[in-house]
């Protein structure tokens, strides 16, 4: 059985260190700017921190992946190519890219730099993945959270590119890289600005009707007294459709595929990604610890693998809305 790599999020140096300490095979991070899809204030790495993080991980035999997975525009193109140059010089083990133009630049300028296709590239078929392999020599692709297990298996059977999937964390209900909802509401999007429903457009208002959360003035949800008010990610609000008020797109919930691990291993998944660079080092510690234990158990005795209640309890504690879903892997979710 192939060994599955555990890829953990690092929004800061402490998160990186704890991920490495608790058994991540790889950590992924981004620079402190709009070149990556978690461009939040107080998050991400200055160049010196990148060097320190890489030294820490490499000393312990782990890898560092650098996300440069937003789409540069004509006006800011030089900042993205400079970021590629910095990444290559820093000695990262791979860069995670979405934009074909940037891949062409990386392949030409730094032919030894390993390229991963970001989930933001929206490649959902082997034909799309092969496009990036033939043109730019990508070695791994992260699949959007839309395919069923049988469809993932079919992708793996038809491409030489390693396949990485999301295992745990915040769940995009839309195809990643194909969502302009945030741009429509706020003018800022994951594709171009590296942030969905960005904080500077958020307003929390205590009103006689309850706590209201707004995004650029648009009411995303309203919470009764005693209800836990969540962040107004716009696809996870409550709206009215034909006079019915409900989570019309998706509930606040996390993806959790722990129970699918044996199947994911059998079909040949090469890496599992944990979402959450915007989360705290405590989150990273907890999630990394559980997934390391689960992957080790699977490796030692695949036939006997069972998810323990303790693992699920630990993961539910850090889930959005304290609940989890199998997402698109589970047909009724669709």
């Amino acid at each position: 059985m192939n060994r599955i790599e555990l890829v953990c999020p690092a929004g800061s140096l402490p998160a990186l260190k704890t991920a490495v300490d608790h058994g991540a095979d790889c950590v992924y991070l981004g620079f402190k700017d709009a070149t990556n899809a978690r461009n939040f204030s107080g998050l991400n790495f200055e160049p010196a921190q990148v060097r320190e993080g890489i030294a820490y991980a490499h000393a312990r035999g782990r890898k560092v992946l650098l996300a440069l997975n937003t789409y540069p525009q004509a006006a800011n193109w030089p900042s993205w190519t400079a970021a590629i140059d910095r990444a290559a010089e820093s000695g990262v083990d791979a860069v995670i890219l979405a934009d074909p133009g940037l891949m062409a630049y990386a392949a030409r300028t730094h032919p030894q730099l390993r390229l991963h296709l970001s989930v933001q590239g929206s490649a959902t078929s082997y034909e799309a993945i092969e496009f990036y392999r033939e043109r730019f020599g990508i070695q791994r692709a992260v699949l959007p959270r839309v395919l069923s297990l049988a469809q993932v298996e079919n992708v793996i059977a038809n491409t030489a590119v390693e396949i990485e999937v999301f295992g745990f964390g915040g769940l995009c209900v839309m195809v990643e890289g194909r969502c302009a909802l945030s741009a429509y509401a706020t003018g800022e999007s994951p594709n171009c600005n590296g942030a969905c429903s960005p904080g500077r457009h958020v307003r929390w208002e205590e009103t006689p009707r309850g706590m209201e959360t707004r995004l650029n003035g648009i009411l995303i949800d309203r919470f009764a007294n005693g209800e836990r008010a969540g962040y107004p990610t716009l696809c996870k609000g409550r709206f009215e459709v034909n006079d019915e008020t409900y989570y019309a797109l998706e509930e606040p919930t996390s993806l959790n595929t722990l129970e699918l691990l044996p199947e994911l291993a059998r079909i040949g998944i090469r890496a599992i990604k944990i979402e959450g660079r915007q989360r705290s080092p405590a989150y990273v510690t907890q999630v990394t610890r559980v997934w390391r234990a689960a992957l080790d158990r699977l490796q030692a005795a695949p036939a006997a693998f069972q998810v323990t209640p303790a693992w699920m309890a630990e993961l539910n504690k850090v889930s959005e809305g304290q609940s989890h879903t199998l997402g698109a892997y589970y047909r009724p979710w669709k």
Binding site: R145, V146, L147, M174, A180, C235, A248, P332, W333, K334
Partner: peptide, 21 residues
């Protein structure tokens, strides 16, 4: 009307409490 996003989930089926399949 602007096409803004695509999902594996069908939101019309969800509205009628049905599954996509």
């Amino acid at each position: 009307r602007l096409p803004l996003a695509h999902s594996a989930r069908c939101f019309t089926a969800r509205h009628f409490n049905l599954q996509k399949d």
